[in-house]
Write a protein that binds this DNA or RNA. Structure first.
Lengths: 155, 155
DNA sequence: AGGCGTTAGTTCAAATTCGAACCACGCGTT
DNA sequence: AACGCGTGGTTCGAATTTGAACTAACGCCT
């Protein structure tokens, strides 16, 4: 029971999860790309900035929130800056830190892709559940997410 | 109800899903890397080959099964071939096609990482559900996966 | 046989990602 | 003030990924 091959029910659940997350990612990616010329990673950065106080976050906090490496964030923010969607500025209180801030143009770009993004997420995932199933699904994945976060922080 | 912001229950489900799949991917990746020096992508290739008749598949079938681009598969199979885990050979019946075949060494490498892989999948996901929840979860994600596959094939 | 649209796979350059190395700074200790 | 250690960010080269050609071969149709 503990180191045997995954049994059929387990296998089905695992494969379904892998396939679903893989394809959802591709759908989201595709919509954001064609629809607003941005990647899912860039989109998530803009979303987190939008949510943040003063529409800005320090690079390291941003990296934690979107769960990517520092160097990857540096690269992506540079790209976003090039497009004028984000601006960098030095933090006065901590001279090591850098603020990444959503620009007005960035907010527009975000607003422009969001309806399409919601359509993809609802049309392919959330909207295919009954209210009860949505609740169940949310409970299950959040339990897993919480566990994985704890797991990770213990390192 | 159709183009409003995601409401709390939806948002929770979506974010939970994104975080869970992202972190599961990282956990799996980490285990396979440290434990057997391979990426999740390489692992999936070996698994599909292992499952196939004669432990071999044509490149394009393999690409479809692991859901990656042709060029990416070419690259990854080349890497696996370099490590001696897979071998390529021409297909006699269709001179365009190429067989990718799991070598004995590849089968060993696969066998070596599988216990750890199962531990990660069970310890972080499947094993955290009751039998009933596992069934529910499997049903939900497979419904989504099936839908996304149809969706995609209609293009 | 010749033509034509499709499929299989590879190749190439450009874009992205990774991970280790690095620099500058903050902070607590001495 | 000097030291040492941890943090915040960037940089750099190597590895990987992308997507658009490109070559070869198949299969159908005439």
């Amino acid at each position: 029971m503990n180191n045997d091959a995954l049994h059929p029910t387990e296998l089905r659940a695992w494969l379904g999860f892998v396939v679903a997350s893989h394809l959802m990612e591709q759908e989201v990616e595709r919509q954001l790309k064609t629809d607003g010329g941005m990647s899912h990673g860039e989109f998530e950065i803009l979303v987190k900035l939008d949510l943040a106080d003063g529409h800005r976050l320090r690079m390291s906090d941003l990296a934690r929130q979107v769960m990517i490496s520092k160097s990857r964030l540096t690269y992506q923010v540079t790209q976003l800056e090039r497009q004028g969607l984000v601006s960098r500025s030095d933090c006065p209180s901590d001279r090591r830190a850098v603020w990444a801030e959503l620009t007005a143009k960035g907010a527009e770009a975000l607003a422009a892709v969001r309806p399409g993004h919601r359509r993809v997420v609802r049309g392919n995932l959330l909207g295919r559940f009954t209210d009860e199933e949505l609740q169940q699904f949310g409970d299950l994945v959040n339990r897993i997410a919480d566990h994985l976060l704890e797991q990770r922080d213990g390192r």
